[in-house]
Design a protein around this nucleic acid. Structure first.
Lengths: 193, 193
DNA sequence: TTGCTCCTCACGTCACGTGAGGTGGC
DNA sequence: TTGCTCCTCACGTCACGTGAGGTGGC
């Protein structure tokens, strides 16, 4: 007699959320999202609670968390969610630094290439070889950077950590007004489309 | 009687380049870098030419190319290296845009979390759920963004393309002096360590 | 009966990491 | 003989994509 008896079949849910049916199968397999019932013929039937859980999954996925982390978070097995987000932030900053470097190097190569008549792949290779000494970051090195950051963080006392975060927030907030917007404009200008 | 008879064993090469032995095994497997000879007992022996090829591989890998692309480039099977670099640039810009967005969202969540007393994961979930409507990018969507960019590019005439690139170069060059440096400073300021 | 949706395997992806089990001495 | 390096399989990773082959009608 409870309301909300409506259920969704997997295809309906997929269409509604933009996920693939295969993704929902996958979430079921890894026990991240199991439909609360099945039809007599074995079809997955998702109830309202399932749909709400799915929305959270999608949101958290948008934050770059792995499906395992999402599962633990949703099941209340994460003692320090703030720490989780902080680690995410560290990781993204590491990636960002690497991407910016790579972006700059690619632009340099492209400029040099454009300055050359009929650039052959020989030219390209010579160019690139000339840049070999520049810092290049592999996935492994990225992981290590992130690890070092985390390590550094963990070496701080709670007070020091609080200070560090306060100062970063302040740095960001102090430029929030026009500068931040300006920064975004520039970034946007660099991105075609 | 030619000079340069020196060869390297796989462990020596790995130690010298910082790569893992397994990576070199992998490059051999996929025919990206096969040692020019083997010892009687079957040990891989890398000659000078192999080492030079490896240096190029490492350099190109630093540009985010896949091993397949690197192989084709080194074997002269890429008709338009400039196009290859351009596509790389597009991809990196797409990633960059996504990473910046994610970074900003994570900061927001962290700030909101810090403003709360004893934040539980419930708090976190509510917060994040409130942001669900924000643009979130999956890998698939990123791929599509890059695809659209490439598509857009391919729809241009050579003249239009040249104009586009010229204007981008100009935009970058016009701010090269102090502005570009300033931009880097700001970026650096946002990155702890 | 014909579509359309659903089901369960199961292999492939990308660049290796990580043992397992065994041989050789650049 | 004891290490150390080398060898060849071969499974695992992460989040699914992509068929294959078959059943059911929320």
């Amino acid at each position: 007699m409870t309301p909300e008896q409506r259920t969704w079949k997997i295809g309906e849910l997929a269409a509604a959320t933009g996920l693939s049916v295969r993704s929902l199968h996958h979430y079921d397999e890894i026990a991240l999202l199991r439909p609360s019932s099945r039809s007599p013929s074995g079809h997955r039937l998702y109830a309202g609670a399932d749909v709400r859980r799915l929305h959270r999954i999608v949101a958290l996925r948008g934050f770059g968390l792995t499906l395992t982390e999402i599962g633990r978070l949703l099941d209340g097995e994460v003692p320090d969610p703030r720490g989780l987000i902080r680690r995410q932030l560290d990781q993204v900053e590491t990636q960002l630094a690497a991407a910016i470097q790579l972006h700059d190097r690619l632009l340099e190569v492209l400029n040099a290439l454009d300055a050359t008549e009929a650039p052959s792949d020989r030219t390209l290779l010579n160019l690139i070889e000339g840049m070999t000494t520049m810092t290049r970051l592999t996935q492994h090195e990225l992981d290590e950077m992130t690890a070092r950051r985390t390590e550094f963080r963990d070496s701080l006392t709670p007070t020091e950590l609080a200070d560090l975060e306060a100062s970063r927030r302040q740095a960001l907030e102090s430029m929030t007004e026009s500068e931040l917007e300006e920064m975004r404009q520039r970034r946007a200008a660099m991105m075609p489309r």
